[in-house]
Simulated scan of single mutants.
Amino acid sequence: MIQFSLADLSERPADDPLGRPSMGWREGMSPEIVYALNRGCWSLGEAAEEHTVALFASTGDGTVRLAVAIERIEDAGEIDGDKKRAVVGTVLRPGHPVHDRYVGHRAPEQLNVTFRYVTAECRQVEASTGNVCTTGAKWIVTPDDGPEYIACGHHVTAPLGGSVPFRARPMR
């Protein structure tokens, strides 16, 4: 998962490679606008291509304002000779486990840099101890008869109870 910083809304230079009029965030902006203004231009290396989820958190209070399912990372031109890249993906909505876990809540890390690769915690309750699992979540699980959730490898089937059909896709 990649966590990006969202500063206060500000104007972009006229030579912005993505043609954006501004970047950042302010209260009341729709998720689509936040995504369009902040999906690039980042100095992302090849490691970014391994990730499937992006969080965008405000630098002021550290609250996640947007979650995106990453489809790919694309080239976005250059700024001052530095190659920039942009996230291409789908804005996650209420009801998606990543959205519900993070959007409106404190980000996994308070950033003093523009972005960082972070690990989501599983957060499933251990049946034997009642403790919350803090192992890194690796899967988005979709049961045939229930809501999606995220889990580590050990807890993929834990909330299902019996033999409930499900699909799991990787979360990075």
Rank of each mutant, 00 (worst) to 15 (best):
E50H: 10
H105Q: 14
Y35N: 04
A47S: 15
R93H: 04
G104L: 06
A36I: 00
G146W: 09
P97F: 07
G146L: 05
D144C: 02
G62S: 02
N38F: 10
V141C: 10
I140G: 03
R123G: 06
M23I: 01
G45D: 12
A76Y: 08
H105N: 14
S58D: 04
R101K: 14
L37D: 10
N38P: 06
K138I: 11
G89D: 07
G146K: 05
A107N: 06
C133H: 11
D144M: 01
E50I: 05
T114K: 07
P108H: 13
I79F: 05
N38L: 04
A36H: 02
H51Q: 13
P143T: 11
Q124G: 02
P97T: 06
C133S: 08
V34Y: 03
P97Q: 09
G40Y: 02
G45R: 11
H96G: 09
D61A: 11
A69P: 04
E49S: 14
L37F: 14
E78G: 01
I70Y: 02
T63V: 14
G136R: 01
L55Q: 06
E121K: 12
N38V: 02
E71P: 02
F56W: 13
W139E: 07
V125D: 03
G62Q: 05
D145P: 01
G130Q: 02
D61P: 07
C133G: 06
E148P: 09
Y149I: 08
I140E: 09
A120C: 10
L111M: 11
T119R: 15
E49A: 12
I140K: 12
W139G: 05
E126Y: 10
V88F: 06
R85N: 12
D61H: 14
G136Y: 03
V64Q: 06
E32F: 02
S22I: 01
L37W: 12
L55N: 06
A36S: 08
G24L: 13
A36M: 03
W25P: 00
R72F: 06
N112E: 15
A107H: 01
T142P: 03
A107E: 04
Q110H: 14
S128I: 05
C133L: 05
G95A: 02
A36G: 00
E49D: 14
Q110K: 12
L66I: 02
A48S: 15
